[in-house]
Computed example of a mutant assay.
Amino acid sequence: MESFLVSTSVVGLAEIGDKTQLLSLVLAARYRKPIPIVLGVLVATLVNHAASGALGAWLASVIHPNVMNWAVVASFALMAVWILIPDKLDEEEALATKSHFGVFGTTVVAFFLAEMGDKTQIVTIALAARFHEFYGVVAGTTLGMMLANVPAIYLGHKFADRLPTKVVHALAAVIFVVLGGFALRTALYPDAHPMF
């Protein structure tokens, strides 16, 4: 349950102002059909985060625990800095919303591609490696993505303009620092019972 709750909150906060949330706004403005867009985001997220969670769980099983602990510390520290850098949707990603696949298919393809190498994908890998758990992490990161993107899809630009994204990003950075601190404690004292 802990991995699910941490994954949901971290990804939900990290997604605010992220390029995939911007893509959700573009898709909502272009097509004005929220249900196929929401379903497309869900499918793309599940596929992407399942692959990321599997990679994280696999890495945790093949890399020595001490090395993995330090890698997780580094990944959380990097995410704390990266989250403070605002995302922008580039032209190629915006053009990916023009497709012959219909609203659902276009959303799946565009969202999946935009999520490749994105913050939330990296976080999913790190969380799965940290918690040594696939299902709780993937369910949590997927729920976090949906909690951030569904309102953006339904409420469009009105919603996005009212979010204090700098404050949300700062809060997410603090959470990554805290997670990094717990991971650092585990790396320094591997025999101690992990708090997190």
Score class of each variant (00 low, 15 high):
Pro190Glu: 07
Val6Trp: 09
Asp87Asn: 08
Ala173Cys: 10
Leu95Glu: 14
Pro65Cys: 02
Thr97Asn: 05
Thr45Glu: 03
Ala50Cys: 14
Val123Tyr: 05
Val43Cys: 10
Thr165His: 01
Leu147Val: 14
Phe101Ile: 04
Gly144Tyr: 01
Val138Lys: 00
Val174Met: 12
Leu84Ser: 05
Gly181Phe: 14
Pro34Phe: 11
Asn69Glu: 06
Leu13Phe: 14
Gly56Phe: 02
Tyr31Ile: 08
Ile63Phe: 13
His100Ala: 13
Leu188Pro: 00
Trp58Leu: 12
Leu46Trp: 07
Trp82Pro: 04
Gly102Ile: 09
Asp90Ser: 04
Gln121Ser: 14
Asn149Tyr: 11
Ala57Met: 08
Ser99Gln: 08
Gly40His: 03
Gly56Cys: 07
Ala126Val: 10
Gln121Asn: 09
Arg162Ala: 15
Gly136Leu: 11
Met195Trp: 06
Ile37Gln: 06
Leu39Tyr: 07
Ala50Tyr: 05
Arg162Thr: 11
Ile122Ala: 13
Arg30Met: 10
Leu127Pro: 01
His193Gly: 03
Thr165Gly: 00
Pro151Cys: 06
Phe4Arg: 09
Met146Ile: 14
Thr8Pro: 01
Pro86Asp: 11
His64Val: 08
Ala192Ser: 06
Phe104Pro: 00
Thr186Arg: 11
Met145His: 13
Thr107Arg: 08
Thr8Cys: 14
Leu143Ile: 14
Phe196Met: 13
Ala152Thr: 15
His49Cys: 04
Met68Thr: 14
Thr124Phe: 08
Val123Asn: 10
Ala129Ile: 10
Asp191Trp: 06
Ala71Leu: 15
Val10Trp: 00
Met1Glu: 08
Pro151Arg: 09
Ala74Phe: 06
Leu46Asn: 05
Ile37Leu: 13
Thr124Tyr: 00
Leu163Cys: 07
Ile175His: 04
Val67Arg: 11
Asp87Leu: 03
Val73Cys: 12
Leu184His: 07
Gly102Thr: 07
Leu188Cys: 13
Gly181Asn: 08
Ile122Pro: 04
Asp18Gly: 13
Ile35Gly: 06
Val177Tyr: 00
Leu27Trp: 08
Ile37Arg: 02
Val47Tyr: 03
Val81Ser: 08
Glu133Ile: 01
Phe131Cys: 08
Glu92Trp: 00
Ala148Gly: 09
Leu147Asp: 03
Leu46Met: 14
Ala51Val: 12
Gly102Asn: 05
Glu133Gln: 11
Tyr189Ser: 09
Ala170Ile: 15
Glu115Lys: 00
Lys166Arg: 15
Leu59Asp: 08
Glu91Tyr: 01
His169Phe: 10
Gly53Gln: 04
Arg30Gln: 14
Leu78Arg: 02
Ala114Ile: 07
Ala173Met: 07
Ile83Trp: 00
Val81Cys: 06
Met145Gly: 04
Asn69Arg: 15
Pro34His: 12
Val11Trp: 00
Ser61Trp: 09
Ser52Met: 12
Lys98Phe: 05
Leu188Val: 12
Gln21Glu: 15
Phe111Thr: 11
Asn149Val: 07
Leu22Ile: 11
Val26Asn: 10
Glu91Arg: 01
His193Ser: 08
Ala50His: 05
Phe134Arg: 06
Glu115Asn: 13
Leu39Phe: 11
Met79Asp: 12
Ile83Arg: 10
Ala28Arg: 02
Pro190Phe: 01
Gln121Glu: 15
Leu84Ala: 07
